[in-house]
């Protein structure tokens, strides 16, 4: 499987994704500079975390104008897979590939810690092999991750089963206490209506290496790969 990891000025989780995909998952990976115009035949485009353009103005607001984003939109339009994590999720919402917005955490503080995620919809490649009765321990690390969308969009996300992940307790229950950034409906990740563009704030790539003592995040990559391979 061929992955493209985009690199914007200020991206800082690009190499983490390359390490997981190449060294741990054994996949083919290319890093693609944001000024490029070619996705080099990648089947999955990864939009990594970090602070593209320093998050100046608003997270993702400048990055969406990078030349490569036109190719990403076309790739998504053709049904290609796009997965944005953290800053990548913010960029995808700014680019209009995903609905809603990520606002400053309610605490007004950056928060980095292990949290738990519950899978709401297993009807995507990314989530098909995940267990919706299980809470996955995945790190979060952001200052602007509070998911917001108007009521009509929220309702549509629910009706069309577009909510992929919610913040939850270790036992899988969804509570306000587990919703550290104050997201509406505890939303941690969503997909587009066509179910080929995914965005999530927490970082599964930070929980994919045995050496780090937590491999819950690897299941997300395995799900994506497993279902992709199944299709071939």
């Amino acid at each position: 499987m061929k992955f493209a990891v985009l690199v914007f000025p200020g991206s800082n989780c690009d190499d983490d994704l390359v390490y997981v995909l190449r060294e741990i998952m054994g996949q083919s990976v290319v890093k693609i500079w944001h000024k490029d115009h070619d996705l080099q035949g990648a089947e999955v485009v990864m939009v990594p975390g970090g602070f593209a353009y320093g998050d100046y103005l608003r997270a993702g607001a400048i990055a969406r104008f990078s030349p490569i984003m036109r190719e990403v939109a076309a790739h998504a339009q053709r049904g290609g897979y796009v997965w944005g994590i953290c800053n990548g999720f913010q960029i995808l919402t700014e680019a209009g590939l995903l609905e809603g917005a990520l606002l400053r955490n309610l605490s007004r503080q950056y928060i980095c810690k292990n949290i738990y995620l519950r899978t709401l919809s297993t009807q995507t490649l990314l989530t098909r092999q995940l267990d919706s009765s299980k809470a996955y321990c995945i790190p979060m690390a952001h200052g602007e991750g509070r998911y917001y969308a108007p009521m009509n969009i929220l309702k549509k996300l629910q009706d069309q089963d577009q909510i992929l992940f919610q913040y939850c307790e270790a036992d899988g229950s969804v509570s306000e206490a587990a919703n550290l950034n104050g997201s509406l409906l505890n939303i941690a990740g969503i997909c587009n209506p066509a179910r080929n563009v995914f965005g999530m704030m927490p970082h599964p790539e930070r929980a994919a290496d045995e050496m780090l003592g937590n491999t819950d995040g690897r299941l997300f990559f395995e799900s994506l790969l497993g279902t992709l391979l199944e299709k071939v």
Partner: peptide, 27 residues
């Protein structure tokens, strides 16, 4: 420390196993 990104780089071995000193894998 929860206001610091302690995990970027995916090298911090202490996130899930605290130790008296930081253990940082060298990629």
């Amino acid at each position: 420390y929860e206001q610091y990104d302690s995990m970027v780089g995916t090298v911090n071995a202490n996130t899930n196993a605290p130790a008296d000193a930081a253990v940082v894998w060298i990629k």
